[in-house]
Design a protein around this nucleic acid. Sequence first.
RNA 1: GUAGGUGUAGCUCAGUCGGUUAGAGCAUCAGGUUGUGGUUCUGAGGGCCGUGGGUUCGAUUCCCAUCACUUACCCCA
Length: 402
Amino acid sequence: MVNPLRGMKDTVGEFSEKYTYVVENCTKIAKNYGFSFIETPILEETQLFKRSVGESSDIVGKEMYQFIDKGQNDVCMRPEGTAGVVRAFITQKYDRAGGIKRFFYHGPMFRYERPQKGRLRQFHQFGAETFGQESVKEDAMIILMLKEMFDVLGITYRLQINSLGDFNCMPQYRDNLVKFLDKTEGLCEDCQRRKLTNPIRVLDCKNEHCQSLLKDAPMLLDNLCSTCKDDFEELKSILDGFNVTYEVDTKLVRGLDYYNKTAFEFISDGIGAQNAIAGGGRYDKLVEFLDGRPTAGVGFAMGIERLADLVVMPETKKEGYYIGALSEDALKQVFQLVVKKRKTDAVHTLYSAKSIKAHLKAADKANAKFFICIGDDELKNQTLVLKDLETKEEKILKWDEL
RNA sequence: GUAGGUGUAGCUCAGUCGGUUAGAGCAUCAGGUUGUGGUUCUGAGGGCCGUGGGUUCGAUUCCCAUCACUUACCCCA
């Protein structure tokens, strides 16, 4: 027997129901917010992710599904969605065209990690990206859109927000932080490394000892320039205006290198240790990092598997038809009716003649709302009895009236 | 990569203090006298008890290894 690879799952059964439910609902909402569907390749040049996600990130450092293909190209299964969308944005020369573009996407992402609850090697994200909109109102709009998605899906969450500053205030803050870290003894090995590669990420080190050392570290939010500060205030006031509750977490940094200004995460309790259900933020420098014209960007991604553990599905209703034959002679007519009715409705049937009781049982199992059986009487009169399996009402119709 | 937990029927799990034909519920299939269902009743099929080795007269049970799954660390969706 051939088993699926570690950390890879088939989308079937209950998860399949939830997956399509999440994607359908989020698609509808994203379209209402002005986003249009984009699909980018799963395979990209490794370089794309190194340059966008960042060499210092764990994703690039140790989690990439990377290999050399038959043409000796260094390629990689996408570990996240933003890089590919930004690449496509530049490929299409939308950066030169100017204006505002909004895209949403969904599909598989790949990270070579140890699987656990809420974490797979192949997992699925739904995400959206806005290009060319510098206003923090877009950041707020994206958060409001996510709130609406979670509300529709019946998912409760905690929202954490932060501002990482921009190219004016961030470098200065980073220098201050590095100076502080240089004076600090006893940081863990990872933090020693982060200090050199991406010092900001020391802030969200999970090591308790490191956290205690960071108590007096300079804080991001205290060092924002006036633009960043104003934007962050505006973001908060918009969220307040829509009664969105949030926590400001000045140590929220996120694991990808490309973020600036707004960063946010939606957290859910009760799905295990992997509690981030969605995350995102602003990445105003990413387009030019990837050789495009300077273009602002904001976006988010959410993990569909993690959402699926939380979705409240609507009750399944009886739906569609069941058409069965009571005799061999009736099978042909049943076929006719089934194919005709399937132009408009879901129809279940059996290919063999059964007792009416057996058909009713089968119809219940198929969760059909309407029931039709064709036997000798019906063949003679060219009629059928249409039974509503919920109300138990029956009425007699001509075949062509169905 | 590290640590813990678990591998018995399609699924969820009992069980064997080592001893003849390994159990249940659900699911599947077939019936319950020939045209009215769901939460009825009867029956049937379905298991190299994860794999390899060791101890033993005898292992699904004990021991070791291995593989798989799972949870957690790191990090993230």
